[in-house]
């Protein structure tokens, strides 16, 4: 099978969905002529024109708010918030309008809006361009939250997000854009809400998502040599969580470790961990462990930035502790 980058996979998803459905259009900062801060929308302006690939002013609230308004009239907008760090600027639109309008109106409308954004550390961009804010979004009933780790997942899940009649926040990771992976040439979709077991194992389950899936797989390789057989579950969707896959894995391995890049306190892992408690407490042979980001704003210095998020080494270390 051919290999393409995460960035190319996302670009193909957008291209295919725009070709398939003329109601799909793109809106965001620097997405048209420039092709997006991370190059995901390169080439789409030339192919589809400025009516369907709109450069916007730097107006995050209006980008999400007008995305909602056009979705209510039957369009399928895919809007881009350049960095998830800017989500605070449109949080009212997202939380109070986008997520709630269908419920508040008694189900008499749909909001087929996709909000693409990217997050995560790794480029030493400091506190305003490196955050992992997925836990804020998981707390909002009415939206879905998707965080793919591989090119194939990114493509299949973005296509599903665009076709979904519910609002979806699709969070990419800045350090994954250049990663390569096998992606089918034929059209395919990956359903939202399904986790994927990226490596099967028998001794312990890692529950993770986005870039930390890659770190977890590397850690699993190292641990394999020590005789620890790790199962890596890539959650892929954080809202709704795939409880069935989580449950099946933990019931098999009897141990669960959560690896998350976001800050530990009230982070995504808190919800994932409680889900394990509620679903399979009786099957646990050890306390659940979180390997998470430090509770600090992201520092600039490269050594501090690395220390602020989990590393392959800290994952290996954490798992050794649980296996003791």
């Amino acid at each position: 099978m051919r290999e393409i980058t995460y960035r190319q996979a996302l670009n193909e998803a957008l291209d295919e969905e725009m070709a398939r459905d003329e109601k799909v259009f793109l809106m965001g900062e620097d997405i048209a002529i420039y092709g997006g801060a991370y190059g995901v929308t390169i080439g789409l302006l030339n192919k589809y024109g400025e009516e369907r690939v709109k450069d916007t002013p730097i107006s995050e609230a209006a980008i999400v708010g007008t995305g909602l308004g056009s979705a209510l009239l039957g369009y399928r907008p895919v809007v881009e918030i350049m960095y998830i760090d800017f989500i605070g600027l449109c949080m009212d639109q997202l939380n109070n309008q986008v997520a709630k309008i269908r419920y508040m109106f008694g189900g008499k409308c749909t909001v087929p809006l996709t909000i693409r954004t990217e997050g995560g550390a790794g480029r030493t961009l400091g506190a305003h361009h490196s955050q992992s804010l997925e836990a804020w979004l998981m707390h909002i009933p009415g939206i879905k939250v998707v965080m793919p780790s591989t090119p194939a997942d990114a493509k299949g899940l973005l296509k599903s997000s665009i076709r979904d009649d519910n609002p979806v926040v699709f969070i990419e990771h800045k350090m994954l854009y250049n990663t390569k992976g096998q992606v089918p040439e034929n059209e395919y979709l990956i359903p939202i809400g399904n986790a994927d077991v990226k490596k099967t194992g028998t001794d312990i389950t890692i529950l993770t998502y986005s870039r930390m899936t890659l770190f977890s797989l590397k850690a699993a390789e190292i641990l394999e040599k020590e005789g620890i057989n790790v199962e890596v579950v890539d959650l892929r969707t954080l809202l709704p969580l795939d409880k069935t896959t989580i449950k099946n894995s933990v019931m098999k391995t009897n141990r669960a470790v959560i690896v998350e890049e976001d800050t530990r306190t009230a982070g995504a892992g808190a919800e994932i961990g409680m889900t394990v408690m509620e679903e399979c407490f009786d099957y646990l042979d050890a306390p659940i462990k979180r390997i998470a980001g430090a509770d600090v704003p992201m520092p600039k210095a490269p050594n501090l930035e690395s220390l602020a998020i989990p590393s392959v080494e800290s994952i290996v270390e954490g798992i050794r502790e649980v296996m003791k």
Binding site: F25, E51, A61, A62, V64, G65, T66, G67, L68, G69, S70, A71, L72, L73, G74, Y75, P77, Q93, Q97
Partner: peptide, 14 residues
């Protein structure tokens, strides 16, 4: 404001 302006985008595109 966002909803109305977005509806305006949709009407213009239509």
């Amino acid at each position: 404001l966002g909803i109305a302006t977005g509806a305006g985008i949709a009407l213009k595109m239509q």
